[in-house]
Computed example of a mutant assay.
Amino acid sequence: MGSSQIIPYLAGLADKGHHITILSTEKKDRFYEMETDLKTLLNNHSINWHYIFYTKRPPVISTWLDIRKLKQKCNKLMHKHQFEIVHTRSYIASIVGLYLKKKSSIKFIFDMRGFYADERVDGNLWPQKNPIFRFIYKKFKKTEKQLLKKCDHVVSLTYAGADIIHKWDNTTDKRISIIPCCTDFDHFNFKNIDHNKNYKKNFNIEDNSFVLTYLGSIGTWYLLDEMLLFFKKLLEYKSDSVFLFITKDDPSLIQNTARRLNIDQSKIIIKSSNRDELPKTLSITDIAIFFIKPSFSKKASSPTKLAELMGMGIPVICNNIGDLDAQLSTFPGALVIEDLSNESFQRAVEKTESLTLTPKNEIHNFAKTIYDLNIGIERYHIMYENLQ
């Protein structure tokens, strides 16, 4: 259960008077690391928490088993609490939400979090040359239509995603709320940092170094090669630059890729950071970067890291997915590049100086108008009130 994109919203909604019960699917290894802290946090907001453990294998069958366990758990909880609304996050949980809707006429919110089936195909997790995955994809797309048709409300992360939903069959009259990935701007706030302290020393970075930062996991969607090639171009312009990766992923993946691209290893710094320490770690950043694999499914995506970075007053360079171009194209503290070509990298590098001149307060305040957690909580609150 994510600390940044689940609990803060539900805590805020509970504080507004909603009686909330969470049912989550947890991975055992991570669960025992954070069980005590999570229970304390949720108890502080009078939120009930129930869970099942995630089934990893065998593929496909494990998902069916989890859905079955979730339905069984929901039946018991529904009998005890008589819920008025079931609010499901992403597609697997929404299958269970639809089951409850049909069984008890409960109000059902389908919080999409992106186009799940298309993401699996675009990310080559469900290769369509494989007849089994081709069948699964078609099955999920059929289920998606049912979820959109039968739910009482849809939540999309982006306007671009909502436009696509409206064009699909049986959804033109569906009420859709747009709630991007928000963040807590009290936590991610450059004003909380003691700027008299030299945090660069903690990472063995020279005071005069220009710090380019990437925040988050390196996986299916984030383009490591392209980000390192951008950094290589930046080194031609600013030879004192270093590339800081703040990630919990295996450092060897980044190091091996940098080596293959003939980038000096001493220029690559890889550190992990927990959420409490993250603002201090980010505070040494001059510019942040992230490049995401362009695809149809990414029209419905909203990167959480963007709000966290801009909350710290950090200018951002990224490519266009979701609503990013519409949101950022006219703002001087962000740059959405046209494509991932060497020419685009060159133009972006030449604009780094002007990006860093944007006042931190201006970046923070701009981001707060779009990605503030309190705005997201209020939109969910209004949704709940209208459905009850």
Rank of each mutant, 00 (worst) to 15 (best):
Q5W: 04
P8H: 09
L10F: 15
G12K: 05
G12R: 13
L13M: 06
A14C: 02
A14G: 08
K16V: 09
G17D: 05
H19E: 15
H19T: 13
T21E: 03
I22D: 07
I22Y: 12
L23G: 04
L23C: 04
S24F: 12
E26L: 02
K27S: 02
F31Q: 00
Y32M: 01
M34Q: 05
L41G: 09
N43Y: 11
N43F: 09
N44M: 04
H45M: 09
N48R: 09
N48M: 12
Y51V: 08
F53K: 07
T55W: 00
R57S: 11
R57A: 03
P58D: 15
T63F: 02
W64L: 15
D66N: 11
K71M: 14
K73G: 12
T88K: 13
R89G: 01
I92V: 14
I95T: 02
K101Y: 08
K102A: 14
K103V: 04
S104V: 02
S105H: 15
E119V: 11
V121K: 10
G123F: 01
I132F: 10
T143E: 11
L147W: 12
D152N: 15
H153R: 14
H153D: 13
V154T: 07
L157M: 12
G161R: 09
A162T: 06
W168C: 12
N170H: 05
T171C: 15
D173V: 10
I176W: 00
P180V: 05
C181Y: 02
C181T: 13
T183R: 14
H187R: 10
N189F: 00
D194A: 02
K197Q: 07
Y199P: 01
K200G: 12
K200H: 01
N202R: 06
D207F: 02
N208M: 11
S209F: 00
Y214R: 05
L224G: 05
M227K: 03
M227Q: 11
F231C: 00
K232L: 10
L235R: 07
E236V: 00
Y237C: 04
K238P: 03
K238Q: 11
D240K: 08
F245C: 01
F245G: 04
T247Y: 07
R259E: 15
L261H: 08
I263S: 01
K267H: 07
I268S: 05
I269V: 14
I270H: 07
S273C: 13
S273Q: 10
N274E: 09
E277L: 12
L278W: 10
L278C: 07
P279V: 03
T281R: 15
L282C: 10
T285F: 14
A288S: 15
A288D: 09
F290R: 06
F291S: 07
F291K: 03
F296Q: 05
S301K: 15
K305H: 08
V316D: 12
I317H: 09
C318I: 11
C318F: 00
D323W: 06
Q327P: 00
S329K: 03
S329C: 10
G333L: 00
A334Q: 10
L335T: 04
V336T: 07
D339E: 02
S344E: 04
V349M: 05
K351I: 06
T352H: 04
E353V: 04
T356Q: 15
L357S: 15
N361F: 00
N365L: 10
F366V: 11
T369K: 13
T369L: 06
Y371Q: 08
L373Y: 04
N374Y: 07
I375V: 09
E378S: 02
Y384M: 06
Y384S: 03
E385N: 14
N386V: 08
